[in-house]
Amino acid sequence: MITFLILCAVSFILIILLTPLFIRIGRMLNLTGVDIHKPHKPIIPKTGGPALVISVMASITMYLIIQGFSTEVLALIISSLIAALIGFLEDLKGEVNPKIKPLLLVFAGIPILALSVYNPRPVLPFIGVTRLTKIYPILVLASYPVVCNAVNSIDVLNGSVSFTSIAFFTAILAVSIINGLEYPLMISLVMLATLAGFALYNRYPSRIFAGNSGSLFIGAVMASTAIIWRIEVVAIIALLPHIMNEMHVIFSMRGLKSAKQHNSRPILVEEGWITANPDPHAPLTLVRMLSAKVKVREDILVRSISILSLYSAFLAVLTSILFMR
């Protein structure tokens, strides 16, 4: 218990100290993005990812030093670092071809297979433990592009990635406590402490963005935790708003395309007020649905998205209690 409290404190203090440093580094290296929803379009550093990575990795490594080595946690570390690196390269070089990016993210799943830390017997509602020996490794590789891009695609408003991820890890924390899972408990606590600290800088009005490195890193931690500790179903349900957003974007844009390639934007912004684009050909996104026929401020929209994520987290825990025990 004390170890967990120390880990939370370390993660929180690290992110609080590191984020201002990375805000300065981002400005110095010109690793910035335009906050397009604000009337004066401020330039914001998108270097939150490295701060998140260092805080989480330092705390997890500390846990391994105290409690002993774990191959499962090592696989999670390598997978998440690969995803963060892909995101960081995208932050540095600009947007990667949306058809190539999912292929690159497949590499994040390789450490899980190489270190053999997966169990091809996922636990499903009604079915219980099932055997997916041949299909499961393919699902492992496919899960990284899906989850990482889902987290990436919800990172469109100030603080949205922080608060929706907090909801996800709250569900993982609850399920870990209920089922007595030590490592997912530790990882969710570290992620919650880190994301809570990061949210102080990332919330409206953002002083830093997570960037692709941050969102892909968070997505990889989510996918790895779900796969290694066999809580795939809980993760899928907790990620329903993310999956809904990603799936609808892909379907409505008829394939993997960059939003910049699309003529019509999902939302219209006027003096800081956001409203859904009435154009029937505009991409279908969660933000567009929430702002249908209403003018909303960005921070209020983030609150609504967070409520949706918390609701999904509740459904995930409910599924675990009702159908998987």
């Binding site: 899928i236 329903l240 929430l290 609504s304 409520i307 609701y311 999904s312 599924t319």
Partner: peptide
């Protein structure tokens, strides 16, 4: 209207969950 939109999406998520 935002409340109505949020509740509609909550309903959609519930349908998706029951569907799952």
């Amino acid at each position: 209207s935002l409340l109505r939109n949020t509740l509609t999406i909550i309903m959609l998520l519930t349908i998706a969950w029951i569907g799952f």
